[in-house]
Design a binder for these strands. Structure first.
Lengths: 318, 318
DNA sequence: CAATTACTGTACCGTTAGTATAATATATTG
DNA sequence: CAATATATTATACTAACGGTACAGTAATTG
């Protein structure tokens, strides 16, 4: 499987074997995921505070030792859950964007509606609120940053939708949109049927936001300068984030065409690239490079996309 | 002090003596208030969860037995604090309204700004959030109801400001205004100087809300019917609330004129009426009646106002 | 097979909210 | 003033929690 060619290490094997190797290296599977899943269920049912570690142990069928082998604390478990959900959310949002006009307000509405659905399912708001309190500064910071990221994502989408000329007012609009949306959701859910579609709420909220954007552009009133974002998130971090977003979008699009062509194994390869590149603390360039090379064999991936992918990976790895 | 006149019990004495009697009957003073005050300080500094009961005992210099004699639990203490703050807020809001046009948007802005200031001072948002989590259903319900009351108060103010013809859209407007305001506050505070005036934020938020109201009236879009409020708060309760609000406004106005005329003792009498009428579980009609009667001697209170007061009290007591 | 690794079980620590109670101080009342 | 009632203290206690420590066991791997 490994061999030297002119002093350079070369790895060659089928996609399947590579997948196996990766799965082991990345150790993303196993019971840890199970524990996350189970505790997530418990948190949804009972809430974070109300769920004791003993509950989690009983429900997942592991011992305390194992738990603290996986997670250094209950809070760290919660962060893991949040991160996973954020990943899912981001993936699905990108999926919606494929082949669509980024400036289409309806696409944005669909993305928000989906986010709200997942939020509702997993009680993310409740968990966030529950945590904003906790004494763990790390956890607090994580949640605050997550919420900030949501605002920034919306801000950047609004930029695509309303264009550069509205830019000075779009950070304010994003902030207020989040407020409108959450508050509307809250009361709509308490007053209407719990299983009622949230679509009207989202649509209604988006419309209000659009009105606000127009109004702000007209009255030229501004509360927060969009440049404040850079202050909070250092430039290189936002740059990196942007690259990550771009990569994710590209990957989702590639995956879709692969699935359409019935070339599933390659999808797994893409998953593994994403995994190693975005999740691992120290991505192993060598493994990623190998995987990308083996993508050459996939016919449904055209060379320009592959070039784009390689470019993104190089940028992300430096 | 007591004497019988034709078989009817009559009480006659000066305002001062009456005040003393009341203070004892109502037992509102004493160290309990001190404990509330001290623990409030601790909650502001350290947060609710992070403040242990032992901290409160040490800081207020009482024993555990006394604490649990005053409050049945830590949560109940928190409710006491909330109730007191709500009282203060309501008082100050009414004070602002005296002699002003209820339809003036600037008056509303001032009321909101003041509420935000007090909220900021006492970290009410944080405490509310901190509590939304707790497992105590009573506490949760209390907080939710409090937030709902804020929305309803805003809704009723908007009704005064924008008039009946906008009524169908004012509940939605109130809900979204709360979202806009809170969200704007949150990011404004994190990005700007902590001691910066919040006036621009409030003004900005109110303007957006006004835009939304106009837009809704124009597009005729509605998410929540204002009648839903009655569903949540039974009619008699909202009626009672309205009476209470009216009483409070009248009292604040009376107090102001009394202070202007330098007749302080009567102010205390009014305080005691309010105390007994709105706080006590079973207001003693007899005591209130007596107090009101002794108000006849105050020259700065005209008879029409006194009649109004008597009418309100009768309505509230049945 | 041997050695590393993953996992279990149990006992333990410090802290927390809340209970119980006997002793003591402070008011109230006849 | 003295008897009584009430308010307060001090202390010891319970049960639950998050988290630690560690010796023993099962599974995996080269």
């Amino acid at each position: 499987m490994f061999r030297y060619d002119n002093g350079r290490l070369v790895v060659q094997f089928q996609a399947c074997a590579l997948v196996k190797l990766f799965k082991k290296v990345i150790e993303m599977n196993s019971r840890k995921q199970q524990v996350i899943k189970k505790s997530q269920q418990l948190f949804i049912e009972k809430g974070y505070q109300a769920t004791s570690i003993q509950d989690i142990l009983d429900y997942s069928g592991i011992s305390k030792g194992t738990f603290y082998n996986y997670f250094s604390s209950k809070n760290e478990l919660l962060i893991s859950i949040f991160k996973e959900l954020a990943e899912i959310l981001s993936d699905k949002r990108n999926e919606i964007m494929i082949g669509q006009d980024p400036a289409d307000l309806d696409v944005f509405t669909k993305q928000i509606e989906l986010s709200m659905k997942i939020n509702k399912q997993h009680r993310i708001f409740t968990l966030f609120e529950e945590v904003l309190i906790s004494n763990d500064p790390e956890l607090k910071h994580f949640v605050k940053e997550s919420q900030m990221k949501v605002v920034i994502w919306i801000y950047e989408r609004l930029l695509e939708i309303f264009g550069e000329e509205k830019q000075p007012y779009l950070l304010d609009s994003a902030i207020m949109f989040v407020g409108i949306l959450h508050q509307n959701m809250k009361y709509y859910i308490t007053w209407h049927d719990k299983d009622a579609s949230i679509h009207p709420v989202v649509q209604y909220s988006v419309k209000r936001m659009a009105t606000i954007v127009e109004d702000l552009a007209h009255t030229r009133e501004q509360l927060n300068q969009p440049s404040l974002v850079d202050k909070w998130f250092p430039n290189d971090q936002t740059d990196s984030n942007r690259l990550q977003e771009e990569l994710k979008q590209l990957l989702t699009s590639l995956k879709k065409s692969l699935i359409a062509e019935d070339q599933r194994p390659y999808v797994e390869l893409l998953d593994l690239i994403e995994e190693e590149l975005l999740q691992a603390k120290h991505p192993r360039a060598f493994l990623i490079q190998t995987t990308v090379n083996s993508l050459n064999q996939a016919k449904s991936i055209d060379s320009s996309q592959l070039e784009h992918l390689k470019q993104l990976i190089t940028n992300l790895l430096n």
